[in-house]
Design a protein around this nucleic acid. Structure first.
Length: 422
RNA sequence: GGAGGCGUAUCCUAAUUGGCUAAGGAGCCGGUCUCGAAAAUCGGUGGGGUUGACGCCCCUUGUGGGUUCGAGUCCCACCGCCUCCGCCA
């Protein structure tokens, strides 16, 4: 959420942010209008309330001095004012409600270091690591390799759950578990606190991180309880500190494994083959809470921690700085990590690392006490470290051998206790 | 699922019978004392809104309603926690 004060005092900043995001500023105009109406209504109702309060204490005094006549006449007057207050209060809170609702639909303001651009095509590659392997045989895409070896079973997954689900078998089931464990151990060794979290959360929780209200059709809802399956561990990881004042030293660094659930509404033609885009996948997530002054250094560090997973797995990747037209709703700045996938003959997203600044903390009301003793919103960052399913795909394809077997990356051998798969 | 109990500020904890400013303690910040610290002692100290800023003022006792001139206190609903029972991996 964006500070209403900023919108009031510098609406042009927000207007430019919306332009950069390729969005119209209708919503902003409505908000500015509502905000001035809110303050008008507030002034009127508060004045009436002050009047009511002072008469109320006059009544108390009159009663104390046993002046029945005075207290009766005051009570008549108070009754009148009180009903006026009720009416004015209702109007004011309706305006406030409407304003709040609209504010929840306003995206974050991109950082000045986010490249300006219209779409994906304007994203900027900031660095590359590793070289795609050159081989003189045909690497089987994982969507062929899986069914051919029986290690990925799309058919039965579709039978029990529908399209965009997978069943992993034997060595690949074990590999998935090994990848998650490896990632968690690596992050743990760097000082991340490991957390195991609920995979279902309440509506408020989804709202705190920005998935709701705007993107409800993207989430799986559990109807009778109005709960949601988490689309990422970022949701519970950030929201665990809702309405808290963080004590102790910042930054706080968390890592968590979770399953993630996404409806992928509106991606019907995209990535229909294989397990690149599925409704349920595993991910290891990284979340930082930082002092506002430190969040951009933190973004570099968090991104480096995610990159380190790819380096240790020796998978070629590149880092892309998303442009203003492509960053997510809550993000001020985002680096995507893209891993080399032979089946696509290109780099595909495997991690997304974002600084949301105070956007989520403001929604979730997460603050800290600064050196000047004032309460301020923390800054919040999140990143995948990494998406487990896509990592598995990257290994299956990048480590595939001529004989159809797969070399286990060195870093995973201790977890798999074998050097070859298949 | 059934029965009962409890939610007060950063934390602990009071305020039965509705009434003027939510008392007190801890913690934190500052002063005195001290070579320095601890102890002692004095003062300050919740959050949000409104304001250009200060002050006045408004809201805030889990959340939302209701009764009343007036609600921490009475009523209703919801949420959370605890105890007991039932069911259960």
């Amino acid at each position: 959420m964006i500070d209403v004060r900023l919108i009031r005092e510098n609406p042009e900043i927000v207007r430019r942010a919306l332009e950069y995001r390729q969005m119209t500023s209708e919503l902003l105009d409505e908000i500015v209008d509502l905000e001035s109406k809110r303050r008008e209504a507030l002034q009127v109702v508060e004045q009436k309330k002050a009047e009511r309060n002072s008469i109320s204490s006059e009544i108390a005094r009159a009663k104390a001095s046993k002046d029945e006549n005075l207290s009766v006449s005051l009570m008549d007057r108070a009754k009148e004012i009180s009903s006026e207050v009720k009416e004015l209060d209702l109007r004011a809170s309706q305006i406030e409600e409407e304003l709040k609702k609209k504010l929840l639909y306003l995206p974050n303001i991109p950082s000045s270091t986010t490249p300006v651009g219209k779409s994906e095509e304007d994203n900027v590659v900031v660095r590359m690591w590793g070289e795609p392997r050159k081989v003189d045989f045909e690497i089987r895409p994982h969507w062929d390799y899986g069914p051919e070896t029986g290690l990925i079973d799309f058919e039965r997954a579709a039978k029990i759950s529908g399209a965009r689900f997978t069943i992993l078998r034997r060595d690949l089931a074990r590999l998935e578990r090994a990848i998650a464990n490896f990632m968690l151990d690596l992050h743990h060794s760097k000082g991340y606190e490991e957390v195991a979290l609920p995979f279902m959360v309440k509506r408020d929780t989804m709202q705190a991180t920005g998935q709701l209200p705007k993107f409800e059709e993207e989430a799986y809802r559990i109807d009778p309880d109005d709960m949601f399956m988490i689309p990422t561990a970022e949701v519970p990881l950030v929201s665990q500190h809702m309405d808290e004042i963080l004590e102790g030293d910042l930054p706080k660094k968390y890592t968590a494994y979770s399953a993630c659930f996404r409806r992928e509404a509106g991606s019907y033609g995209k990535d229909v083959r294989g397990m690149i885009r599925v409704h349920q996948f595993d991910k290891v997530e990284l979340v930082w809470f930082t002092h506002p002054d430190d969040s951009y250094d933190a973004l570099e560090n968090l991104t480096a921690d995610a990159e380190d997973v790819l380096r240790k797995l020796e998978l070629p990747y590149r880092v892309v700085s998303l442009c203003t037209g492509d960053i997510g709703f809550a993000a001020a700045k985002t680096y995507d990590l893209e891993v080399w996938l032979p089946s696509y003959n290109t780099y595909r997203e495997i991690s997304s690392c974002s600084n949301v600044e105070d956007f989520q903390p403001r929604r979730a009301n997460i603050r800290f006490r600064d050196v000047d003793n004032k309460l301020k919103f923390v800054h919040c960052l999140n990143g995948s470290g990494l998406a487990v399913g896509r990592t598995l795909v990257a290994i299956v394809e990048n480590y595939q051998r001529r004989d159809g077997k797969i070399d286990v990356p060195k870093a995973l051998v201790p977890y798999m206790r074998q050097e070859v798969i298949g």
